[in-house]
């Protein structure tokens, strides 16, 4: 999902793109999903452990760990977010939850690069940067959205 916005501040005009991956669950909901699954598995395993089949416990424990890991990993992927601010002189690319992720490129030298796979095996890629240093934007977008984003970025960079 891409949201773009033009903010007019006191000093200058800034164009902001917020690029986010698609998701249906918030972190909170993911947590509840995990707790629900773990709870159900827990009830089952403790019932059988109480009957004397305690060897069920390590397997259910392991499974709960895998489920937790899977939900966590996927939620991380689903919460990726990039904020691109373009003002008069520079382009800032930030990935909010991560610290020190802020990248600043001089606008005059920046390029928007698109990579297409002619055979159709891989999704296209969108890079932004300058002086040989590039950063990938919207890896999690679908091709069509990426195409639009590329177009809008070019307009924002060239237009201003």
């Amino acid at each position: 999902m891409v949201r773009s916005d033009v903010q007019i501040g006191s000093r200058s005009t800034q164009t902001v793109f917020v690029v986010e991956s698609n998701r249906n669950l918030s972190w909170r909901q993911s947590k509840w999903l995990f707790l629900f699954l773990a709870g159900c598995i827990g009830i089952v395993s403790f019932y059988f452990a109480s009957l004397g089949a305690w060897l069920v416990l390590p397997f259910t424990g392991l499974e709960i760990l895998i489920i937790g890991g899977a939900i966590y990993a996927q939620s991380c992927c689903a919460h990726r977010k990039q904020i691109i601010r373009i003002d008069q002189s520079q382009i800032e690319v930030d990935e909010p939850p991560r610290r020190n992720a802020l990248k600043i490129f001089p606008k005059a030298w920046s390029k928007v690069v698109q990579i297409h796979d002619n055979q159709g095996w891989y999704p296209s890629r969108l890079l932004i940067g300058s002086h040989g240093e590039f950063i990938e934007i919207g890896k999690y977008l679908i091709d069509d959205e990426r195409e639009q984003l590329a177009h809008q970025l070019r307009c924002a960079i060239e237009g201003a």
Binding site: V113, I115, H116, D117
Partner: peptide, 17 residues
């Protein structure tokens, strides 16, 4: 200001599976 479009093979060493 320039924009470029590269093909996949130019940018990556791995081709189609």
């Amino acid at each position: 200001m320039s924009t470029t479009t590269l093909t996949h093979d130019e940018a990556h060493d791995h081709g189609a599976p």
